[in-house]
């Protein structure tokens, strides 16, 4: 896949970029120590501009009938309709109005890389905090899972007083991990979360593609809507280094002598190939992938999320299931 085909969302090449002045500069935002304050600042900024958007809210309400097939719970048979038409129909209800959102935040050591005054982990934490805060305002249940090669912290999605504070605390105290292993958290989420919801995975995805497809598709088949936010440092995207140096891999500790002039071309093509592979997987699985440079204003992430939801609401195949008795 050529580099042109990968949409890069950063401060300069999106439509929102033209209104840059109306967003908070991430650099100055990151200087705020308190994560919750940061999140609140972003969300409030976002809400102040929200009136321009015609789309808000996550759910569209309607019910439908579905023909009974053996194995369906007879509790949901519409007996009146049966009386009327002499056919069995199942009443399909909307699951629930509230969204269950799982935030999966990669805190591996590669995420501690950053050249714009803060690192990818800071950005990812802020993004997670922002989404959590925004959703909690909407009274949606938000959960958090931080991981490196193991799962660091797991807070199940709930909506209750103190949940958002717990989330912020968990994000703030999260240590920098070691290598990335994206399989485990995905497996964990897929295995433990029975109810369908939204899974937001924030990671740099700087791992071999390997079994990414299998795990993501597992999530998808469980009915989750998956949004992938890939956060990358600008240097990782353009590899702008000026002189030869020893490059130190902060994940593996390996040292390599690199001449950037000679290596840039290979790097970019390998990087694009990797990115292309990720994109292909996401396309196949119906996953929204956002590749985000960390110098991009954080509010735009919320725009992206809402835009995704809207897109899904319009055309995507809805995955429904018979309404359970519990909420």
């Amino acid at each position: 896949m050529s580099s042109a085909s990968i949409p890069m969302e950063n401060g300069s090449n999106t439509g929102a970029g033209r209104k840059k002045s109306s967003f908070i500069d991430p650099g100055s935002l990151m200087r705020m120590k308190n994560l919750e304050l940061r999140a609140r600042a972003i969300v409030e900024g976002f809400l102040s501009g929200l009136h321009r958007s015609p789309y808000h809210g996550f759910s569209v309400e309607f019910t439908e009938y579905r023909q009974y097939s053996p194995g369906d719970d007879p509790r949901f048979l519409d007996w009146k309709l049966f009386a009327r038409s002499d056919r069995y129909f199942i009443k399909c209800f909307e699951d629930e109005t509230n969204l269950r959102c799982h935030l999966l935040v990669d805190l591996s050591r590669s995420m501690t890389y950053g050249t714009v005054g803060y690192n990818k982990a800071d950005y990812a934490k802020t993004a997670a905090a922002t989404i959590a805060y925004f959703l909690s305002l909407q009274r949606d249940a938000v959960g958090l899972l931080t991981f490196d090669e193991t799962i660091l912290d797991l807070i199940p999605p709930r909506f209750r007083p103190g949940q958002i504070h717990q989330l912020m605390m968990s994000l703030e105290r999260a240590p920098a991990g070691t290598a990335t292993n994206i399989e485990k958290p995905l497996e964990q989420v897929a295995a433990t979360v029975a109810k369908r919801g939204v899974v937001v995975l924030i990671s740099d995805l700087l791992t071999p593609i390997g079994s990414l497809q299998k795990n993501l598709s597992y999530l998808r088949t469980r009915g989750h809507e998956v949004i992938l936010l890939r956060v990358l440092d600008p240097r990782e995207i353009d590899f702008r280094f000026d002189k030869p140096a020893m490059f130190h891999d902060i994940e593996s500790g390996r040292d390599l002598y690199i001449d950037p002039d000679a290596a840039r071309e290979n790097y970019l093509s390998a990087f694009q190939e990797h990115a292309g592979a990720v994109q292909t997987i996401c396309n196949q699985l119906g996953i929204e992938l956002h590749q985000i440079s960390i110098d991009r204003p954080l509010e735009l992430i919320l725009f992206d999320l809402l835009a995704d939801r809207m897109k899904r609401g319009r055309g995507a195949v809805r995955q429904r299931r018979p309404a359970g008795g519990s909420s």
């Binding site: 990782e236 490059f247 130190h248 902060i250 994940e251 290979n266 390998a270 990087f271």
Partner: peptide, 12 residues
């Protein structure tokens, strides 16, 4: 000169 870099997986 010594640079830290997130991952050398794309480098030779």
């Amino acid at each position: 000169a010594r640079y830290e870099f997130s991952s050398l997986m794309f480098l030779q």
